[in-house]
Each structure stands twice: as structure tokens, then as C-alpha cells.
């Protein structure tokens, strides 16, 4: 049953191929990992995390700023978006009234009746 093709209107896919691919990738990962060495000395620089050649902070290097470049490029969009998300319930209701108007206008102007 797992090998049964999932047929769509213009294509298909087979979950089995992805399971097989995942297994092959895991085996390759395991092989690469097994070629590693345990000949390191504990408590030396060999075990310190690499942090762009500089001294790593005591706490973990945190990925929270992973998309800093994305936010910087989208600064203007985010400025607008944050202005839209005020957290004030009055604005939530305004948005709803706006939606009612838009839905009614689209249905009427779209010539539904």
C-alpha cells in the first residue's frame, strides 16, 4: 500500500520514494559520522565551539538572530506590519468592519446577483 502512487490531476508522487531517499541519506550520514575521530583532549581548545574565529560566548550561540538580514531588508514592510498589529481591541473591530465592507463590495460589484 505504501508503494501506491498518489495521483493528482496533472502529476503523481510516491511516498515510498521519499522513505527510501530518507533511509539512504541516514545511512550516508551514519557512514560520514563513523569516519570521525574521538582523539580529542577534553578541557582543551579542541572542544570549544567555533564562533567565526572569535571567542565563543559562555552561553550557547543562539539562532534567534538567524534571519537578521531578512528583517533588515524587509524593514519598511515590518514597520508597516507592526503598525497594523497594535494589540488594541478597537483596531481588531475596525479590521472586522473593513472586512465586512470589502466582502459586501466585492460580492455586489462582482455582479453576484
Amino acid at each position: 500500500m505504501i508503494g501506491r502512487l498518489f495521483i493528482t490531476q496533472s502529476g503523481m508522487w510516491n511516498p515510498l520514494s521519499f522513505v527510501v531517499a530518507a533511509v539512504i541519506i541516514l545511512v550516508i550520514v551514519y557512514i560520514i559520522r563513523s569516519t570521525g575521530t574521538k582523539k580529542y583532549k577534553k578541557g582543551t581548545e579542541q572542544t570549544v565551539a567555533f564562533f567565526s574565529g572569535g571567542k565563543a560566548p559562555e552561553e550557547n550561540v543562539h539562532p534567534e538572530n538567524l534571519y537578521w538580514g531578512f528583517f533588515e531588508a524587509m524593514k519598511r514592510y515590518y514597520k508597516w506590519l507592526m503598525k497594523f498589529h497594535t494589540g488594541i481591541v478597537n483596531d481588531y473591530v475596525y479590521s472586522f468592519v473593513l472586512l465586512v465592507v470589502v466582502v459586501a463590495a466585492v460580492l455586489l460589484l462582482g455582479g453576484a446577483v
Binding site: 481588531y92 472586522f96 459586501a104 446577483v113
Partner: peptide, 27 residues
């Protein structure tokens, strides 16, 4: 069917979209 049905649909659809949390009533 008439204009009244469209008015009713507008209100019902908007209210249900609000409950579903779709944009722009997702906050």
C-alpha cells in the same frame, strides 16, 4: 435570489472568517 441574500452572505462570511482567524481579522 436577491440583493438581500448577498447582504446576508457578506455578514455570515465575514463573521465566520473572523472566527477562523483569517487575514485581516487574525489578530
Amino acid at each position: 435570489s436577491s440583493f438581500l441574500d448577498v447582504a446576508a452572505l457578506s455578514m455570515l462570511a465575514s463573521a465566520l472568517l473572523l472566527k477562523s482567524g483569517a487575514f485581516p481579522v487574525h489578530m
